[in-house]
Design a protein around this nucleic acid. Structure first.
Lengths: 218, 218
DNA sequence: CTTGAGTATTATGAATTCAAAATGCATTCA
DNA sequence: TGAATGCATTTTGAATTCATAATACTCAAG
């Protein structure tokens, strides 16, 4: 039996706009023409404007009174700040995951980890990133804390554009893999504080990589 | 010369509704009658509905498709989860405040701390809570991390209703004051990790107090 | 009585309309 | 030439209208 899921139109529209921002179709700082988007989505302005308000409170869009909406421009310090918070949240996810993770979830993380190592050996960076992402999501989910998951996803969404353009050097890559080895160890040992510390450190590395690649700001 | 500040109507309405929720005029689980609120605010449904969407994405209100909006009902685990995340964020605020706090900001924290001690000695709980709150806000602000401040305030808003009804026993109170002494010491010593740890612990105490008072859930 | 079908009423979702503000453009004057 | 003023156009903000789904109510049947 299929479960029916009635979704509001404005949520659908919000998803679509999020996609456009993430994909770079809508660029940072670009003003959002309501009429145009309405036509391309085939909806009226009402649900579109509601969606824009949601995105505004999510921090993806800014709303200048009487002069419309723009995609928020990422600043260096803004991204830095976001990563700092994400680090704290990811640390917490590790701490909570250790006591709360189920056997099935742990098995899944192990499996993902092995798959990631395989991609690392083959130097297939694209699938490596995908699996890497899945591992972090799996740990986050294993925290079993809805609020944490919601907050993290929100921040993650904001900086997705940046991470997309990150280039990873061989040494950074090796460091990241090493971090992951330590993570799995701590998780197996159910050592929450240690896993938390590793995850915080791990994200710090990611940020350094992003900063080195210098794609932040216009 | 006075600076004019053009604010959107929907933001004004959102503020008003937040107030109603915080004050308990709108109760958890209560369905929000759009028409009625429109009349009492003197606005049309459009800005009101926009405001409701913002509050929904803030986690204060939930939106059931085709059957309107309700004030979210706080569950025990929901509050627990929120406090866990707030703890991580408050810990981060401490870590960041130590390197980033200005002399003026530090002086202000000292002053607030002294005032708080005075209220503790006089057992004036209401003003004690107010100053206490101000100290935490001052440290948060001293992190100089906008994203952190935004996230923390969001979560804080969600559980404000709970904290309002917390009763504090003498022993809990003494413990809280002791925590604050340690906080100020760590801050003066610019010991970020230590201040972070104290703040995390401090919030954990708060939650225990809230749980003991048993006002969560219906 | 209780249950359930069918209708009336109300509330919500979305499009449309109206008003006001901002933008762009042309003209004028220094 | 260039800045400023006034007008036309466009765009945004908010109210209104329309359509549809949910709720309340009535009344009949078991």
């Amino acid at each position: 039996m299929e479960k029916i899921q009635p979704r509001s139109l404005y949520l659908e529209v919000a998803d679509r706009i999020r996609d456009l921002i993430e994909r770079g179709t809508l660029l940072p700082g670009e003003k959002i023409a309501e009429k145009q988007l309405c036509e391309s989505f085939g909806v009226s302005r009402t649900p579109l404007r509601e969606a824009l308000k949601v995105l505004t409170s999510e921090g993806l869009v800014e709303n200048l009174p009487n002069r419309g909406s723009r995609v928020v421009r990422l600043t260096r310090t803004g991204v830095q700040n976001t990563y700092d918070v994400m680090g704290a949240l990811e640390g917490l996810s590790g701490e909570l995951a250790c006591p709360n993770i189920t056997d099935a979830e742990l098995a899944r993380v192990r499996k993902l980890h092995q798959r990631m190592l395989e991609f690392y050996r083959r130097k297939e960076i694209k699938p490596y990133f995908e699996v890497n992402q899945q591992i972090h999501e799996a740990i986050l989910a294993a925290s079993h804390n809805d609020v944490l998951i919601e907050m993290y996803n929100n921040l993650s969404q904001r900086v997705k554009r940046v991470r997309y353009s990150v280039e990873m050097g061989e040494d950074n890559w090796a460091q990241a893999v090493s971090d992951h080895e330590a993570m799995l160890e701590a998780l197996e040992a159910r050592d929450g504080p240690r896993l938390g510390a590793i995850l915080r450190q791990h994200l710090r590395h990611k940020l350094e990589v992003a900063e080195v690649s210098g794609i932040i700001d216009a």
